[in-house]
Structure formats: structure tokens, C-alpha cells
Design a binder for these strands. Structure first.
Length: 520
RNA sequence: GGUCCCGUGGCCGAGUGGCUAGGCAAGGGUCUGCAAAACCCUCUACAGCGGUUCGAAUCCGCUCGGGACCUCCA
């Protein structure tokens, strides 16, 4: 790949679009990108907004790999129940997991550990259904408490942390760079908070600076507790990510990402902890995914208007939202969620979801055409094959250029779709796709799938086969009867049979090679 | 109060100084027993005002409108 584009991303640290450059190479000379992306707290089902952020990370990994890099990708699961007001770190707020356990849904679980396990499993299942790449390491906070305790000790030794009756705090004034990521550095402003716009800021009287945040919280009432040199308690929320990132990726990582809300305080605090501990830069570049809106409204847990992946992809019997057209193709949802560039707010609407589903169909159709031609296509004209190959190479190159340009997915998707449409147009010509042309087309679809994950090759299209449909037998029988009626020119009976099939939610399409069908 | 982002055709969304992205929808057509699908054609926009420039959606200023963070949240 001699003329591979440079990979540029908007760096939150500088607010500039900058080249992303792996700082290391492996033994073979392959560039190695070390990337950490913050995962969710598993106290409920992940919603589509969470997945927009995870998809940003997914696309970073895919683009890096498409450029020939090795990407060491770590994304955590936060399974410790942290406080809702951990930013002020004084013990205000509730434990999120305890609250979830006490809720109606929580009744099904024996304890917080059980609850965390359930929602972690659900997360992984949704992760796979949307075709997200599995991280090289998916560390859990509860499995890294020992490392977190050591980090607290290290920060105390270096004079960046102190102990009070309630816990151990990071002393922000000991780290002059605090605020370099978010711009929130003014102590008085932070102390004042939103100046009455939100809530009373409860302060731990023994904290030395209002910005100081908890590294370890002593709380005998917490449902998850570990023993430490500072007594029984649990680690502060910000600590786990910096500790786990450094454990698996080293003191300085290339890229760290998450949702826009994490910029402050979470990532700001991670920087403070990590850099105070090692004296080295923590992450060279930061990216943040803007929030998703639903029908123009902000989606948030407090509003309760969030959509989970399964709300959209499950059948109504399994709890899918019929008002949203469930069950929708998970890859259509994926396509929709990446159709806007990650750095801009994205408005998820029913109409956009329906549009995405249609768009996704193009890839499914192209794949089907290629598979059919690959089995039986003629040898074909070498010139046509070569022309197709060139067109597809161009389309792929444009898609990759788009992705390299700060993950410009709208541009990349447009280019990718252009290629799929080209394949379809060749397939629909009288001679159709020759076997060699089909091979070129398949290579293209494979590369596009590797880059964008929307073709469905990775998931193996077997489950999309008509034969897997429980209604297939019945429909086939009705279709055969209708075909017979059509041959008899009994149009009234043929139309009546189509109405019957239509009532099953199936659309019939007649083609030169016989009728086919699909779900509405 | 502080910080920041955005206003593109019916809708979604690219495009950072000249060469009409793309998708969906809509209208017309071809094809078809009818339909569906497919294919072809049509729809030339950049919130408003002013400025810079030979030339601005693109740069500058102002106005209007929408949104985000500084609470929970990806």
C-alpha cells in the first residue's frame, strides 16, 4: 500500500485535526497503534448512544488495520457500582448498581455481581450483533482492584494524594496540567459548578481543594467492597481506566477515546492520575464521540427516552419496539449509527432508520448476486472484468480516504455504496457477472466489510438465507400455487394468492427466473 | 454565568474560495397480465444582512435560530 492515506483525527487536546501516528512498530516493522476506548458501566442494557461511541472506536480499529497497522485495542467493562456524583468525589449521590438492583428490573438478580454479569453478557451479545470488532483485551474493573490500590499508593507516595476519614483523594493543585483536555481548570468556577443551574454541590469538608476527586472511597454501606491499606471500600471511577490502559498498553498510549461527556471530568482525571504517577504523557491523542439524539431530543438516562439495541433488533415477542419497526436488521442499525460523522451530533429518527434499512439492502443484493454468479457465471470478457476491478478499486480507495479523514463516514459510505451499485448494474446486464468478475466483486465486498462492517460477510450470511425463515415452507407453497395460476392465466386467483402472502408480511417479486420474496 | 458546536434542496447528510457528493422521498418514463423490484429521467440548495475577492455554501463581521458540556449519561 504505497500511497496509503495518512490517518487524521480531531484531537480533543488541541481541537485540531492531526495525523494519528503509531508510536511503535513490532518486530516485523508493522506500525502498532495502542488504543483504549472507554466502555460502559453495566447496570442496564447498553443503548444506541453507547453504541455510537463504541462504533467510533470500532471504525478507528478497522481503519488502522486497513492501513496495514496492527491495532492493540482495549475496551473495558465498568462493573463496579460508582457513585452518581463521583466527579465531586465527596460521597454524594447513589451507587448506580445498587440503584439498579433496587429497581423493578433488578428484582431478577440475586446481588450486584449477578446483575453486572447479566448486563455484561447482554453487552457482548449486542456488540456481536452489530458486528463490532472484539477488543484484544476487555478488562473488568473488578478484576483490577489490586492494580488500582497500587496506583493509589503510588500517588500518595508522590504527594499527589492524601487520605481523609472518607477516602483517599487526588490533590488537583499538585498537578498543574489539570484542565488541559477540557479547558476546565478554574478552581472557583468548578467549585461553583453551574452556579445554581443544576444542584447543590455537597462538599466533603476535609477535602483540601474543591476539585479533588476520589481515588478510594471508604464506605461500609457499599455492596461491592475490597480490603485495602486504607480500609474497606471501593476504587474511584476515574482510576480504573487509567490503570487498565497502562497495564495493557503501556505508560503512554497513542489514542484514547470515549463519549463526549467523558471529556470532563473522567478523562481529565485519568490524565491527572496517570501522568502524576508516571511523569509521562498518558495519551498522545484523544477523540470524543458526540451524543446521539432521538427524534431531535437528547437521549439520556434521566429522561428515560433511550433506545437499547434490543429495543430495535428484537422481535416484538422478545420485547422489540414495534413503533420503531422492530425487528430491524442489526446491520441496518449499524449503518445508520455510522452514517453521521462521530464529531457531530447525530439525530436518530424513524425515517432515517427506515432509509438505512433500504440502503443496507443494496449490499445484501450485491452479495447475493455475486454468490450466484460465482457458482455458475460464464468466463466472461476479461476487459469487462478489468474495468469492474478498476472501478471497485477506486471506490474502495475513496472509502478508505474518507475514513482516514477524521472518520468521514458519510463520504466513505457514499463511495462504498457506489461500488455496490456498480456490481449490481453489471450483474443485471444480459451477460451478468462472469466468474472472474464475481471474484473481483467478492474481493471488493470483503474489503468494504473489513473497513465498514456493513456487508455482513463477517457474520456469515447463512442466517439471512430464506430457508432459515420459519414461514419459508408455507410461502413457497403459496408461491408455487400462484405460479400455477399465472401459467393458467387465472389472474384473479393469482392476485388472491398474492394477497394471502401479503397478509403474512411478505412482498412477492417476479423475476425472469421465477418469483422471489422478502419480508416487508 | 463560563466553554464550545451547528444552521446546506421535502428529509438525512458530504463539501473550507471557482469545477452542481451521495442516499431517501417525490414526479415522469421503460419493463410487467396486474403489481412489486429494477433501470432511466426530473427536482441546482447552502438561515438573514453586510464585507473581503475577478469569483464565497466555503473567509471576516453582525443578526436570528438550534444544540452540547460545566449534574447523571457514551
Amino acid at each position: 500500500m504505497p500511497d496509503a492515506p495518512s490517518f487524521r483525527l480531531r484531537n480533543t487536546l488541541t481541537r485540531e485535526v492531526e495525523p494519528l501516528v503509531p508510536s511503535q512498530t513490532d518486530a516485523d516493522g508493522t506500525p502498532v497503534l495502542r488504543f483504549y476506548s472507554c466502555g460502559p458501566t453495566v447496570y442496564s442494557y447498553a443503548h444506541v448512544g453507547n453504541f455510537r461511541t463504541f462504533l467510533t472506536a470500532d471504525l478507528v480499529v478497522r481503519t488502522g488495520r486497513a492501513l496495514g497497522w496492527r491495532v492493540d485495542y482495549v475496551s473495558n467493562v465498568t462493573d463496579v457500582g460508582h457513585l452518581t456524583e463521583d466527579d465531586v468525589a465527596d460521597g454524594g449521590g447513589e451507587d448506580k448498581m445498587a440503584r439498579a438492583l433496587a429497581s423493578k428490573e433488578g428484582e431478577a438478580f440475586a446481588n450486584v455481581w449477578d446483575l453486572a454479569r447479566h448486563y455484561t453478557d447482554a453487552l457482548l451479545s449486542d456488540w456481536r450483533s452489530l458486528g463490532l470488532i472484539e477488543p484484544n483485551v476487555r478488562p473488568r474493573a473488578t478484576e483490577h482492584v489490586r492494580e488500582q490500590i497500587r496506583a493509589v499508593e503510588g500517588l500518595m507516595e508522590r504527594g499527589h494524594a492524601y487520605e481523609t476519614e472518607d477516602g483517599v483523594y487526588f490533590h488537583v493543585p499538585s498537578f498543574p496540567d489539570y484542565g488541559k483536555l477540557s479547558g476546565n481548570s478554574d478552581a472557583e468556577r468548578l467549585a461553583a459548578g453551574a452556579a445554581g443551574a443544576s444542584r447543590e454541590v455537597v462538599q466533603d469538608e476535609s477535602k483540601r481543594d474543591p476539585r479533588d476527586f476520589a481515588l478510594w472511597k471508604k464506605d461500609p454501606g457499599h455492596l461491592m467492597q475490597w480490603f485495602s491499606p486504607f480500609g474497606w471500600g471501593f476504587p474511584g471511577w476515574h482510576l480504573e481506566c487509567s490503570v487498565m490502559a497502562q497495564k495493557y498498553l503501556g505508560e503512554t498510549i497513542d489514542l484514547h477515546g470515549g463519549g463526549e461527556d467523558l471529556t470532563f471530568p473522567h478523562h481529565e482525571c485519568e490524565i491527572a492520575q496517570a501522568e502524576a504517577l508516571t511523569g509521562e504523557p498518558f495519551a498522545r491523542m484523544w477523540i470524543h464521540t458526540r451524543f446521539l439524539q432521538v427524534e431531535g431530543e437528547k437521549m439520556s438516562k434521566s429522561k428515560g427516552n433511550f433506545l437499547t439495541v434490543r429495543d430495535l433488533t428484537a422481535t416484538p415477542e422478545e420485547g422489540g419496539r414495534e413503533d420503531w419497526g422492530a425487528p430491524v436488521d442489526p446491520l441496518a442499525l449499524r449503518l445508520l449509527l455510522i452514517s453521521g460523522q462521530y464529531g457531530k451530533p447525530f439525530n436518530l429518527t424513524k425515517k432515517a432508520l427506515a432509509d438505512a434499512a433500504k440502503n443496507r439492502q443494496r449490499y445484501a443484493e450485491a452479495l447475493e448476486a455475486v454468490r450466484e454468479a460465482g457458482e455458475s457465471g460464464p468466463a466472461g470478457d476479461p476487459e469487462i472484468t478489468e474495468g469492474l476491478r478498476e472501478t471497485l478499486d477506486d471506490a474502495y480507495a475513496d472509502a478508505l480516504d474518507g475514513m482516514a479523514d477524521d472518520l468521514n463516514t458519510p463520504v466513505a459510505l457514499a463511495a462504498a455504496l457506489r461500488g455496490a451499485n456498480t456490481i449490481l448494474s453489471v450483474a443485471r446486464q444480459p451477460d451478468g457477472l462472469s466468474a472472474p468478475a464475481a471474484q473481483a466483486a467478492m474481493e471488493y465486498l470483503q474489503r468494504v466489510d473489513d473497513l465498514l462492517g456493513i456487508v455482513g460477510l463477517a457474520a456469515d450470511g447463512a442466517d439471512e438465507d430464506d430457508s432459515a425463515d420459519p414461514l419459508a415452507e408455507e410461502i413457497d407453497a403459496l408461491l408455487a400455487a400462484r405460479q400455477q395460476a399465472r401459467e393458467d392465466k387465472d389472474w384473479a386467483r393469482a392476485d388472491a394468492l398474492r394477497d394471502e402472502i401479503d397478509a403474512l408480511g411478505i412482498v412477492v417479486m417476479d423475476t425472469p427466473s421465477g418469483p422471489t420474496w422478502r419480508r416487508k
